[in-house]
Structures are given as structure tokens and as C-alpha cells.
């Protein structure tokens, strides 16, 4: 989802910050990079190298984009989640 939201700016650090902002907690950079690597091996996202910037000492950025299989997987995941929640009133209330 972070890759989709960021669009053309979806590279490692940007994705890390987006995930941290959405989850409102610190997330290990290793976890994000490992996830992106796994998604790429599954063919759900693809990547290309972009140019570096001075703040990175010229080191390249790897930009990600969600592929057709990734979009299908996101739609399936959203549908599954909607099915799980269907008929449940939100927000939940604890029984007294």
C-alpha cells in the first residue's frame, strides 16, 4: 500500500517513512527492505534504480512500483478484509 500511495516517490527510505507514519511507530528498515525484496521475488512489485543525491553520497535509490499481480493481490486482500468485517458495527464496544 505504501508503494501505491507514494507513486513515483516510492523508494526505500520514503516507503519506510510512510509505513512508520501509517503505523505510528518505529519500524526496522531491515524489515521494510526484506518485505520489498520478498514482494519483488513474488512478482508483486518491480523496481528500477534511480540516480543518487548528495545527501546519500550519490548512492542510487531503488524505486518500486506495484505490478498487475500486486494490484490483484491488494484487491483480494481488501475484499477478504471487508468480508471479515461485514456485519460488524464499528467501533467495537466491550460487553459490560
Amino acid at each position: 500500500m505504501a508503494v501505491l500511495r507514494l507513486g513515483r516517490d516510492a523508494y526505500g527510505r520514503g516507503i519506510l517513512r510512510e509505513v512508520q507514519a501509517r503505523l505510528e511507530r518505529d519500524v526496522a528498515a531491515g524489515a521494510v527492505h526484506a518485505t520489498l525484496d520478498r514482494l519483488e521475488r513474488k512478482g508483486l512489485v518491480s523496481s528500477r534504480l534511480g540516480s543518487g543525491t548528495p545527501v546519500r553520497d550519490g548512492r542510487a535509490r531503488r524505486y518500486y512500483i506495484v505490478g498487475a499481480a500486486g494490484v490483484r493481490a491488494l484487491n483480494d486482500a481488501r475484499e477478504a478484509l471487508d468480508n471479515v468485517w461485514r456485519g460488524v458495527t464499528w467501533p467495537l464496544k466491550a460487553r459490560s
Binding site: 523508494y11 526505500g12 527510505r13 519506510l16 517513512r17 528498515a29 527492505h33 525484496d37 534504480l49 543518487g52 543525491t53 545527501v55 546519500r56 553520497d57 548512492r59 542510487a60 535509490r61 531503488r62
Partner: peptide
């Protein structure tokens, strides 16, 4: 394949 990009991400976050 990740050496430059991952270390660059961490360096950018560190400096920025």
C-alpha cells in the same frame, strides 16, 4: 544488489 541502495536509504534518513 542492495549494498548501494539500502546503505543510501539509511544514510539519507540519518542525515536528513
Amino acid at each position: 544488489a542492495d549494498r548501494e541502495t539500502v546503505s543510501g536509504d539509511l544514510l539519507e534518513e540519518y542525515r536528513d
